[in-house]
Computed example of a mutant assay.
Amino acid sequence: MTSPSDRNQEIEQRERKLREKEVELRLREMEQQMNNNDVPFLKTVKYQPEQKPWMKKVILGGKLFALGVAALIAVRVASVLAGFIIVAVLGWVSYQLFFVSRKKS
């Protein structure tokens, strides 16, 4: 006959084995759920703000017009500056030719 302590140890050992089998079974079930290929995939779509197609063209035309105006202003400013520089250089050259050379002679 077996003693009560041996019987208790045997019962505890069986319970441990049973718990281990349950854990293994649950792990397998979870792994099968993770590897399940029946998961539906949703196709993602880039967010498009609601603009009318002609609105993009209007915005692009406005940018082009602003660039043209900026170019015209830059040309005007450059031509005025070039005029000032030309007048200044002509004045300096005429001063050098007519007034400085007479003083030395």
Rank of each mutant, 00 (worst) to 15 (best):
V77C: 07
G62A: 07
A71H: 03
T44A: 09
V89W: 06
A78M: 08
A82C: 07
V75M: 13
R28P: 02
K17P: 03
V80Y: 14
M55R: 10
A74F: 00
I73L: 00
R14F: 04
K104Y: 10
E50T: 03
I85L: 04
A70P: 01
A70K: 00
V87Y: 04
V75F: 08
K103V: 00
K17T: 11
V87Q: 06
V89I: 10
E50Y: 01
K21S: 14
F84W: 13
K46T: 06
W92Y: 10
N35K: 14
N37I: 00
K17A: 14
D38V: 06
P40G: 08
N35C: 15
F99D: 15
K21M: 12
S3P: 02
Q13H: 01
F98N: 04
E10A: 09
W54S: 10
K56E: 06
V23W: 09
I85N: 06
F99I: 13
E12I: 04
W54R: 08
V58F: 02
K56N: 14
I73H: 05
R26G: 12
R102T: 10
E50H: 04
R102F: 13
E15T: 14
S94G: 05
F41P: 00
I85Y: 02
V45Y: 09
R7T: 14
S3G: 11
N37D: 13
Q13C: 03
E10D: 11
Q96T: 07
R16W: 15
I85V: 08
E22P: 04
F65I: 05
S105H: 02
M55T: 12
G91P: 03
V89M: 08
V39C: 07
E20A: 11
A78I: 04
N35H: 15
Q32G: 03
L81R: 11
N36C: 08
P53S: 12
G83Q: 10
K57W: 09
K43W: 01
L97A: 12
V39K: 06
V23Q: 09
A71K: 01
